[in-house]
Simulated scan of single mutants.
Amino acid sequence: MDQLYMLRAFVAVAQHRSFSKAAASLGVTTGSISKAIAKLEESIQTLILHRTTRSVSVTDAAQSYYLSCCRLLEELDEANRRIAQEREIDSGRLRLVVHPMLVNKTFSRLLSDYQAIAPNVNLMVSVREEAVNLYDGHFDMAILPPHLVEQSGVIRRTLSRSRHIFVAAPGYLERCGTPEAASDLASHFLLLDPASKQKGTNFIDLLETGKRMSVLPMSSMDGNEVLLRAAALTGTGIATISEAMVREDIAAGHLTHILPQCSTSESGAEVCLFYSHRELLPVRLRTFVDFCIDFFRSLPGPIPNAMAAIPQRLDRDVDHALTTV
């Protein structure tokens, strides 16, 4: 009989204090466990288990032997896991879901840089706006705002935070003028996130130099940030949008940041990396986690805020294991 199997049988019986439970844990019959224990005792010429009608326990003579077997099996299992991980790093599938607001030049660079360090990983990217549950088997990881992920039992790591700012195309500002104060927005066509509107009205809530106020725009259009950015780039109106999404457009001169003292949100837009809480995360996923955190840390900082400094990133080593209370 396999020596390793006999040791596993012994440890299982000692841990479960039951032959039947040990058999169930190893996926074998109770008779097979009994034979393994008998063979092991014969091999080492020592009684290793006390058996009664109610319980099973390790004999005094076998206590140190039991601890040695536990260490041996743990080291062997860890070696098996490690070699499996090393084999897995160069291959396998990684299914990633991202929010549409992330699909820009920066995200293209993230993909190309990751593929350079993991050329044999099959990266499958889906772009979605709806809520995601990482335990339904469709995705391994998500880069999304927190409210779009079912968070019980997953790991959440904040990649970036950026405030909502006002931007417009230079052509629009030449045609319609540049607002100098929040009250000037009333005479402009605004491109808005529906969440910025007061419920049941067309008023928008915003902050100006830290003070809350409401503005009723002459005309407006609402939609997701992808739509708002596209409309702003064509000169449709003034958009309120997360700074991270339009940073490249501002740098290139396609959009102009206006009203730096104003924002439609105190907290700003947060983007997080989510992955399921597993005892042993596959190496290809762990590599992607570390890569993402390093990549976002290397990005330029936010546009200076006239109201206050808003943190752009959290420390890379902070993990939040979220569980249902």
Rank of each mutant, 00 (worst) to 15 (best):
L206S: 02
I44M: 12
T209D: 11
L280N: 13
I250C: 12
V127K: 05
A308Y: 01
T29W: 01
H320I: 12
F189I: 00
V13S: 02
L233V: 09
V121C: 06
R316F: 04
S263Q: 05
R109E: 15
Y5H: 03
E88R: 11
H320Q: 14
R81Y: 11
V98K: 00
S32M: 09
M101E: 13
P311K: 08
S183K: 07
S91G: 00
V318I: 15
Y114I: 00
I48C: 06
A14Q: 04
L190Q: 03
S91D: 08
Y275C: 10
D290C: 02
A232K: 05
K21H: 08
K21T: 02
P282G: 08
V215D: 05
L233I: 11
P300I: 09
S263K: 08
T236M: 14
V127D: 07
H254K: 06
Q115V: 13
S220I: 02
L144F: 07
Q151P: 00
H320T: 14
L4A: 07
C69I: 01
F166A: 09
A61E: 12
S32A: 12
H99R: 01
T158S: 04
Q15C: 08
S219L: 13
R163N: 08
R297K: 12
R156H: 05
R278L: 15
C70V: 15
Y66G: 00
T53V: 12
H320R: 12
P217D: 04
L47T: 15
T323I: 07
A131N: 07
A230C: 02
D222M: 08
A14N: 02
D319F: 09
L159V: 10
P179W: 06
S162L: 01
E180Y: 07
E279S: 15
I83T: 14
N133C: 11
I241S: 11
A231R: 15
V246W: 03
N122R: 09
T59S: 01
L7R: 02
C176H: 09
D193A: 11
A239P: 06
A118L: 00
S162D: 10
A306N: 07
S263G: 07
L190S: 10
Y5L: 06
R284S: 09
M221S: 14
D136E: 15
E78F: 05
Q85N: 11
G200P: 00
R229T: 12
D193K: 02
R313K: 11
N120M: 06
A306F: 10
S20Q: 03
M141E: 10
L67H: 14
A306C: 05
D319E: 14
C176P: 00
A186V: 08
L73M: 07
P179Y: 11
L96P: 01
A14C: 09
M141L: 13
N120H: 14
L123S: 07
I143H: 06
D290G: 07
C70G: 03
E86P: 00
R8C: 00
M124C: 09
F274D: 05
K105E: 15
I89K: 13
Q85P: 01
H254S: 15
A142I: 10
L94N: 09
L47V: 14
N80E: 15
H99D: 15
F291I: 05
E130C: 06
